[in-house]
Design a protein around this nucleic acid. Structure first.
Lengths: 344, 344
DNA sequence: ACATTTGCCTGACTATAGTCAGAGAATGGA
DNA sequence: TCCATTCTCTGACTATAGTCAGGCAAATGT
């Protein structure tokens, strides 16, 4: 497995990355091109640019002034806050950005051009799959204080969604409360999932000594649904509950939340009778932890067992192996001919 | 299609490339690390390094001496040719290389770690597919003089393979000859397929005025089989034949070459009676060009029709869209909540 | 044997990317 | 009102990556 990932890293990153950069930096340094793109039509606050591209403020400042000198952008103070600046594209900047857009298309075409029709569709499909899963793997899950802005943002989105999806609407005041203190150690905990440091999901655990603990506040942002994030949050909560000697987990949910119900079932939760009087709930679930298992997915954060083979493959350019892509093929036996010195 | 490729380029290249480089250049500049890797155990001639990494000779020289100063490599003249130098790793160099190897593994693990078991296998499968096809798209096909070293290398490999696979062996002198002049314009032409400027396949066309032309010397290196290269070479030959008013293509082949026979059939060649007395042939095929089509794959080198949508997506870092990966999902409607300023 | 080519090296440059320590203005909170 | 903080900018550096023009020595072809 690791071997395939490494092989992919070498071959694909190298080839596509190189092609990409070659097209983009045809007449402008890469850093500037990146920035020009990132500003986008409509303009962007400088501090946003800094955090998004993760640039030193001095460096960014210089890049901005280079673009400004070339008449591609105009920088002015933000309306709301006199300290922050806003960069916006001039019409020349817009044109330049459209050129970049076109070049990026060319780079993509360059990949597709040599392939046949069937190969193209297979490539597109596989690329979509890799992309989905790589994005999924870029999501980070961490314990956060429920009072943290990211947590608050998730909770707001969560309540908003409940209000939209429950046929009765949703009023937090009528629901059984789960106050911040109850979702903070030692009473419980709150997990936030982030993608590129923006919150995209959450889940909470409310402990009751060594009695059954409760799963609360399970939410995944619409943009990242279908990436297995719900399952991952749930597994993470279960692991942390188990680490605190919890034997039984419980949760209640509304019948409008069909994906959630499906998730709980798939993760080994069994429907039980109502164990509380939550007015918005239609289903109550329970799961006993520490089972002989077989039905639960391996927990996220677990170390992958796959051992490294001593003589395994490429690190960087790895052109030797990369060259004739023996990884791609099964065997690598009798092609000495193809490798024979071309200039002999 | 182009949109998906672009989206992939941004997301995957960015994420994986960044991770990769972060691991590798922990204590050594990337250029040096790459070089150290490329030299490999057993050492490599400097001119090979130059062509493989496509480096300026001056720059390479400096990199080599930096590594030499650090005691990681030793450079000496090659045994065969006093002009060329050979770089080989010292024991410290070996150790350093193994560290890089380990770091590269770590980078791969880092991708897999957050995923569940099912996701991992799906990712691996999709990565293998993308890699195969990206390698396929990196193969270049061009007309070459059959006397060119690359062409010679292919022919040598081709004859070698025939000798190994025909139960009777193969002696070029007994076969109907196709001399260099007959495979050079205007009498014919010779195609060479290269991957990273190493020859990996060939195919030739022998014209007979406006009579049936012959396909000859079809060969694909074992390491790149299964990438559709044979089909591509064949399509390319057909296109060039058609451009010269050829109406009918012919070829003969030996029954030991089962993949080739399958390829010809799949590409619309019909078996016909022997049209020559080639002693090594068991099957003779023919194809009429310029048919109403439907059975031939689209010719390589053809322009892809897929038009660019005016407001389409990211060029460079493209963090805006990239961030919550709307491309990955179908829709992008109601997740304003998840985007709301995390620092609000 | 001699001219040409090939392969590597050196010196002299340039551009890009990035870091770090402040300075100075605007803002927010006590 | 004042103090601490936030945000951007400037100056002063450094490292990496690369380019280009020769120079010298070994090999090659005639």
């Amino acid at each position: 497995m690791v071997g395939q990932v490494r092989s992919f890293n070498r071959t694909v990153t190298q080839r596509i990355g190189a092609l990409h950069d070659r097209f983009l930096s045809r007449d402008r340094p890469l850093g500037q091109a990146r920035l020009l793109w990132e500003i986008g039509p409509g303009g962007t606050d400088i501090r946003l640019l800094r955090s998004r591209l993760d640039l030193d403020s001095g460096y960014l400042s210089r890049l901005l002034r280079a673009l400004e000198r070339d008449g591609l952008i105009a920088v002015g103070p933000s309306a709301a806050d006199g300290r922050v600046g806003t960069a916006r594209l001039t019409s020349r900047g817009q044109a330049e950005r459209e050129t970049l857009d076109r070049l990026s298309d060319d780079a993509a075409q360059e990949i597709l051009r040599p392939l046949g029709a069937g190969q193209r569709t297979r490539l597109i499909t596989a690329m979509a799959e890799v992309e989905r899963l790589v994005v999924a793997s870029a999501v980070e899950v961490a314990v956060r204080d429920p009072r943290h802005p990211d947590a608050r943002s998730c909770l707001r989105a969560y309540f908003g969604e409940l209000a939209g999806r429950f046929e009765s609407g949703f009023d937090p005041a009528r629901s059984i409360p789960a106050e911040d203190d109850h979702l903070t150690m030692p009473a419980g905990l709150f997990l936030v999932a982030s993608l590129h440091s923006e919150p995209v999901g959450c889940g909470a655990l409310k402990l009751h000594g060594d009695g059954p603990a409760e799963i609360k506040r399970m939410w995944v942002a619409p943009a990242v649904r279908g990436l297995g994030l719900g399952r991952r949050l749930l597994a993470e909560l279960e692991a942390r509950a188990a680490a605190r000697q919890v034997r039984v987990l419980r949760l209640e949910t509304n019948h409008a939340l069909t994906e959630a119900i499906g998730l709980y079932r798939a993760c080994g939760y069994r429907e039980v009778g109502a164990f509380n009087d939550e007015p918005y709930a239609h289903h109550w679930f329970e799961k006993h932890l520490g089972r002989p298992a077989g039905e639960t997915a391996p927990k996220a954060g677990e170390t992958v067992p796959a051992g490294r083979k001593p003589g395994s493959f490429g690190v960087v350019a790895g052109v030797q192996e990369h060259r004739l892509a023996p990884d791609v093929q099964g065997g690598q036996g009798a092609h000495a001919d193809a490798r024979s010195a071309p200039s002999a």
